[in-house]
């Protein structure tokens, strides 16, 4: 794919072994992300988005986890222990639940100051930097927040603190793992707005993990739809979200409530539910797909690499798509 890719995943598979059961969380996932772009990883819970993020940073528990394939960040391998060198310095992450993601035992300022120390800056001059970092995420009284403990802050404040902490070391790539899911709707909007502004101002690449198609549309340049740990569709957010080609993406979009429908129109739902045990050699979505054919259950669709649009669906690929 593009030569200016900051992150390239090829055939990444992640599975967890527990006792004698093995769960395939991510199945031969490949994608690339260009420098400075925002890629949204979209999928329902259990689709493997968060697991992918954790694997990229080497944060999955070692026991029982099997990872194969390759993920290159700026040319360097991230998987198999390589992430420890870049995490916190060149790649940062913001987690879903800001309350549990922040240490309850340390003051917010001290937790942020630590990120500066790691970036190679001495702690002694960290204090004004900490306050500047907190001010940069639109916190009204940054000095007070720096002295507070996480439990004394509101949910929105906490997530801003997490953002400040992640951006402290000026990372090239920031991973946002459902950063607004645990927040109130109004707070969600202001946080998304903050992220968009910071992204542009700092020219960071952003891997935005979400199940919220609206949030993906507002923030992302490109969208990658995941189902059952497998890629469904990849393309610019405009194309994917306005003209979906994979039946799963189409069904997801159809399930969104829309303001132009007359009130009282029932929401479209995808029949059935995701069942990991039904994953076979075929397409992961086949058991719930309205247009599935016998071959969908037999062979797994894989789009041929192309720079514009990838759709992992038999029907699309022989329908003479992109």
């Amino acid at each position: 794919m593009s030569g200016d890719a900051i992150l390239t995943l090829s055939d990444v598979s992640i599975s967890f072994a527990r006792g004698d059961r093995t769960t395939q969380a991510v199945d031969r996932l490949s994608f690339a992300m260009a420098r400075g772009e925002c890629l949204a990883l979209v999928g329902e819970s259990g689709s493997g988005k968060s697991v992918t993020a954790l694997a990229l940073l080497g944060l999955l528990p070692k026991q029982g986890t099997r990872i194969s394939g390759s993920a290159r960040f700026d040319g360097a391998e991230l998987l198999h222990g390589g992430a420890a060198r870049v995490r916190g310095r060149r790649i940062a992450i913001v987690f879903q639940d800001p309350l549990s993601a922040l240490s309850p035992y340390h003051r917010v300022g001290a937790q942020i100051a630590e990120s500066f120390t790691i970036g190679g800056v001495a702690t002694s001059d960290a204090d004004p930097k900490v306050i500047a970092a907190l001010a940069a995420v639109d916190l009204l009284s940054p000095a007070e927040v720096a002295r507070a403990f996480p439990h004394q802050l509101s949910g929105g404040q906490r997530q801003r603190v997490c953002l400040a902490m992640a951006m402290a070391c000026e990372p090239e790539l920031i991973i946002l793992d459902e950063p607004t899911t645990a927040l109130d709707v109004t707070v969600q909007l202001s946080i998304l707005d903050l992220i968009a502004r910071q992204m542009r101002a700092r020219r960071m690449s952003v891997l935005f993990i979400t199940h919220d198609l609206g949030a993906a549309a507002s923030l992302a340049d490109r969208v990658l739809v995941l189902y059952g740990g497998r890629r469904c569709e990849w393309g610019t957010s405009e194309e994917v979200l306005s003209a979906p080609r994979h039946p799963y993406t189409a069904a997801l979009l159809a399930a969104l409530p829309r303001s132009d429908h007359p009130s009282g129109t029932p929401l479209a739902a995808i029949p059935g539910r995701f069942d990991r045990s039904s994953l076979s050699g075929g397409c992961a979505f086949a058991p719930r797909c309205a247009v599935a054919e016998p071959r969908c259950r037999e062979s797994r669709p894989m789009a041929a690499p192309s720079a514009i649009r990838l759709v992992d669906c038999h029907l699309h690929n022989d329908g003479g798509g992109a």
Binding site: L59, R87, S100, A101, H106, C162
Partner: peptide, 20 residues
């Protein structure tokens, strides 16, 4: 989660354990 955050910050294992 906050231990995971500390690791994500790039802290060494010794510091993650002793401090967090």
């Amino acid at each position: 989660d906050f231990v995971r955050t500390a690791r994500a910050k790039g802290l060494g294992e010794a510091r993650v354990i002793s401090r967090y």
